[in-house]
Design a protein around this nucleic acid. Structure first.
Lengths: 152, 152
DNA sequence: CTTGAATGATTCGAGCTAGAACTATCACAG
DNA sequence: CTGTGATAGTTCTAGCTCGAATCATTCAAG
């Protein structure tokens, strides 16, 4: 049952490469976060907080569970980088807003993350190919027929 | 200094897609592991233990730190899936060997992981493109010019 | 209004992970 | 042999993550 060598090998190769490159990206974030005295998850959260959003939306942007966003936000709030405000239209939700310090932190994170990106060994055309291939996979992988619109 | 839109956006998109698809793969492993009563890391370790190797080599194959391999191996050993034997040629190292139960577990893991792979929405040609692009990135990312010379 | 399903946020438990510090061993040069 | 540096494995700490359970609120009927 084990031998359909070529297809399976290709599949495994790709999975392994995706995993390894994801870890390369992770290491990049980790290094940047370290330089700024942040934890990696905090850096990612700041990057995604380009505007006031709910904790739920942050979780979506970080592609993690909501409980996780709560965890990271707790620490960001302790450090005075974000504020949790009541949402104007939905009393269940909270609006996450960057403080002045948070804004500075975010600027630094965004700046350093885009510098020395691990993607520079591919030219724009290759990156676009990559984007479109991954786009198919991600769409399919989450293949939930998306019954939701992102009307915030 | 925030606006070099196109290049940066492409870069970010690709990073985000890689991250999301890596999590799709992770979820796949998680589901399979769950079905077999294993933790995700255990399933991955079993998958990589296609032959007796050292803990170090396992860490490389799992692309994680050595300390991590130790952690996973502790639990696999507790559950009687692997054995740590003294390495025949190097007394520092240990050889990780699957038990009979471990072999069965590995077979089940390998079998189920290859079934319903998240890559099926790409045909072989696209997968090869993906492999070659990621290959460049991974090689480059790990490609720290190693200040070591072969002492030949 | 009342009911019930869906949603936003949180808490908690179990497990994963990197990185640093440490021990033992090896490889090599003197 | 002795010392030096590299390597294999382990331990420990701090932090990350999922998934399940919980609570309040919202929304859609009736």
């Amino acid at each position: 049952m084990a031998d359909r060598p070529v297809e399976i090998q290709l599949d495994r190769d790709v999975c392994k490469l995706v995993h390894r490159f994801a870890r390369t990206l992770d290491t990049h974030v980790r290094r940047v976060a370290d330089e700024l005295g942040l934890t990696p998850a905090q850096a990612v959260a700041l990057r995604e907080l380009s505007e006031p959003i709910t904790a739920r939306e942050l979780a979506v942007r970080m592609s993690c569970e909501a409980s996780n966003a709560t965890f990271v936000l707790d620490r960001l709030e302790e450090q005075g980088l974000v504020e949790r405000r009541p949402h104007p239209r939905d009393r269940r939700a909270k609006q996450i807003v960057l403080t002045a310090t948070g804004e500075r932190g975010r600027a630094a994170v965004v700046d350093r993350l885009s510098a020395r990106s691990p993607l520079t060994s591919l030219d724009a055309r290759q990156q676009e190919t990559l984007r479109s291939l991954l786009g198919v996979l991600v769409e399919d992988g989450n293949g939930q027929p998306d019954a939701r619109k992102t009307s915030s």
